[in-house]
């Protein structure tokens, strides 16, 4: 009797101790690792600032996009007149143009990545889940598309169907989903066969819970990493199109449009190229740092 009592008491103590120990989830772990990564956190902060400025930047300036004035053509960046980034060859304020361009470039980067994410996840998950001959056929098709210079198709799409901004969204999104599909398919395949799924099945965990607690957290890591790397890629693709005069059309502007105009006036007004190019490069750096940081934080191999 006493023996039994003592045993249950120690058991209770153990259970009590276990209850006080708070479990740490994969995501808490990852968040902690990520917050310790200085480059990645710096990237988040700078990118956040650029995003905020893309909203409030044009409001701060006394000028608007429509303010063309003959007296203020090609002014170098100055604190006077409130033309902080100077003006372009039509007298428009570069501060306003730069942040309006940021707005368009960032939106396009995020929207096209979202489209690519939707297509890629649906396609990859189907292929990985169904498996067999369907999987083989679907991935062969991806292989075929992979072997092509896809930017050419974007250019053909954009030139033949007219140059509007929504088409740019769709064209880029429809082309950039291939890698996403490959990643999701690979993850789905490998997770499907893992022992912990089997263990969960054996111990009678419901399918919904298995998907929520075991499948999604293990599939989503590489996807998140790839998403942060795809956004800058797509911003570059849009800039590339705009540089060739095929992307965003006036009066809308993007960093690509500004860089293209700046490149033509490089000898007389270098700031027209340097300012948007600098912000584009900073944005690229930020996304790459964040992507690398996320990869390090989410990859369980390097613990």
């Amino acid at each position: 009797m006493t023996l039994f009592q003592a045993q249950s008491e120690s058991q209770l103590q153990l259970m009590d101790a276990a209850a006080r120990l708070k479990g740490r989830s994969l995501w808490q772990d990852a968040a902690e690792r990520f917050s310790k990564n200085k480059a990645a956190m710096g990237g988040v902060i700078v990118l956040g600032l650029i995003a905020i400025m893309s909203i409030v930047g044009p409001m701060i300036s006394p000028y608007t996009l429509e303010d063309l004035s003959w007296e203020s053509i090609g002014i170098a960046p100055t604190m006077e007149n409130s033309h902080w980034f100077g003006t372009d060859d039509t007298g428009r304020d570069m501060w306003v143009l730069t942040w309006m361009g940021a707005r368009v470039s960032l939106t396009i980067g995020v929207m096209t990545t979202f489209i690519a994410l939707l297509i890629g996840v649906a396609y990859g998950a189907t292929a990985g889940y169904v498996g067999g001959r369907t999987d083989n056929l679907m991935m062969r098709f991806v292989d075929v598309l992979y072997a092509l210079p896809l930017l050419f198709f974007i250019i053909i799409l954009v030139t033949v169907f007219g140059r509007n901004i929504y088409l740019v969204f769709v064209a880029i999104g429809c082309v950039e989903w291939l890698t996403m599909a490959r990643i999701v398919r690979g993850q789905t395949l490998s997770v499907k066969r893992k022992e912990y799924i089997e263990a969960a099945l054996a111990s009678g965990v419901r399918t919904n819970t298995i998907i929520r607690r075991h499948v999604i957290p293990n599939v989503i890591g590489p996807v998140i990493v790839y998403v942060t790397l795809l956004v800058p890629t797509n911003i570059l693709v849009e800039s590339y199109l705009s540089f060739l005069g095929l992307g965003v059309q006036e009066p809308l502007t993007s960093w690509g449009v500004l860089i293209s105009r700046g490149a033509n006036a490089l000898e007389t007004a270098p700031w027209l190229l340097l300012i948007p190019a600098t912000f584009l490069a900073i944005t690229m750096f930020c996304f790459n740092f964040i992507g690398d940081g996320l990869r390090d934080a989410l990859d369980p191999k390097d613990r």
């Binding site: 570059l236 800039s239 590339y240 540089f243 860089i259 293209s260 700046g262 490149a263 490089l266 000898e267 270098p270 190229l273 190019a277 584009l280 490069a281 900073i282 690229m284 750096f285 790459n288």
Partner: peptide, 15 residues
């Protein structure tokens, strides 16, 4: 090299 696209580099180098 990855962050600065060739359409920025090319005009700068020309200049």
């Amino acid at each position: 090299g990855i962050a600065v696209p060739s359409f920025v580099l090319a005009p700068l180098m020309t200049l």
